[in-house]
């Protein structure tokens, strides 16, 4: 995957209701309040890159990921993606809490365009990898947040993605699962797949990524090696690079 450029603005409206619309009409106001989540960001990502994306809350990291996945349309600019994208955006998103884990995997897979047979084939691996056992048959509202994220991660990595988008996925599993997930991601990268990793755990970014960008308020601040970007980012937010911030920033 090469040549990815995004210039992007997005428009959010407050929850639109008729009353608001009528009142606005009376005042002659426009309905939209613009939030520029990502501002004129351009970058290329070659195949096989593990790109870490760091930045404070609301920097536009998740918006950027959704744009790459084709979920949010760019307001201006252009995104080119070569390859099949698998998304693992904010934890557990895409799952219906009243259905069992198994049903959710099936529904999510069908929506993503896989056939029933393909999903059934991967389901065994997914169930095994997530280590959920009997919980796969239980409604997902009974899951702990760690179980949620384990299942979400298992689904994303087993769908044979060319490009894997991971948003905060590794923050919820326990230590053992984190290690397993990291190994799986390393395996995907070794097969020359591309990965975008959004994380506040700077240690993870440093260990796993071979390239990094830093977003701040929608703007691309820096692109470089993970060490360099993290060093600049931590200097920017004025905290020393201690072990504490490495995991929890």
């Amino acid at each position: 995957m090469q040549d990815l450029s995004i210039t992007y603005r997005t428009t959010f409206e407050r929850r639109p209701t008729l009353k608001d619309a009528v009142l606005r009409l009376g005042r002659g106001e426009r309905a939209v309040r613009e939030v520029e989540a990502v501002k004129h960001v351009s970058f290329d990502v070659p195949q096989g890159t593990v790109l870490g994306i760091v930045g404070s809350n609301g920097a536009g990291k998740s918006t950027l990921m959704r744009a790459i996945a084709g979920i949010l349309p760019p307001t201006s600019g252009r995104i080119e993606v070569r390859g099949k994208v698998s998304t693992l955006l904010a934890l557990g998103v895409g799952f219906n809490p009243n259905l069992s884990g198994e049903e959710n995997v099936l529904l999510g897979g069908l929506a993503a365009g896989y056939t029933r047979a393909e999903i059934a084939e991967k389901y065994i691996e997914i169930a095994e990898f997530s280590e959920l056992g009997d919980f796969m048959d239980m409604p997902m509202r009974t899951y702990s947040s760690g179980m949620f994220s384990r299942l979400a991660f298992a689904v994303a990595v087993h769908m044979d993605p060319d490009i894997l988008l991971v948003d905060e996925a590794l923050s919820a599993g326990d230590a053992k699962f984190k290690a397993k997930a990291a190994a799986k991601m390393a395996e995907l990268v070794s097969e020359a797949r591309t990965m975008f990793l959004v994380s506040h755990a700077l240690g993870t970014v440093k260990d796993m990524c071979n390239d990094a960008i830093w977003l701040n308020k929608g703007q691309l601040m820096l692109r470089g090696t993970p060490e360099h970007v993290i060093a600049e980012y931590t200097r920017f937010v004025k905290v020393g690079e201690s072990a504490y911030t490495l995991e929890d920033m």
């Binding site: 428009t11 349309p73 307001t75 600019g77 365009g113």
Partner: peptide, 14 residues
């Protein structure tokens, strides 16, 4: 196509 396949282009469209 916009959903699956090996090459996607996303351009502004609301």
């Amino acid at each position: 196509d916009d959903f699956l396949g090996d090459f996607h282009v996303y351009e502004p469209h609301r």
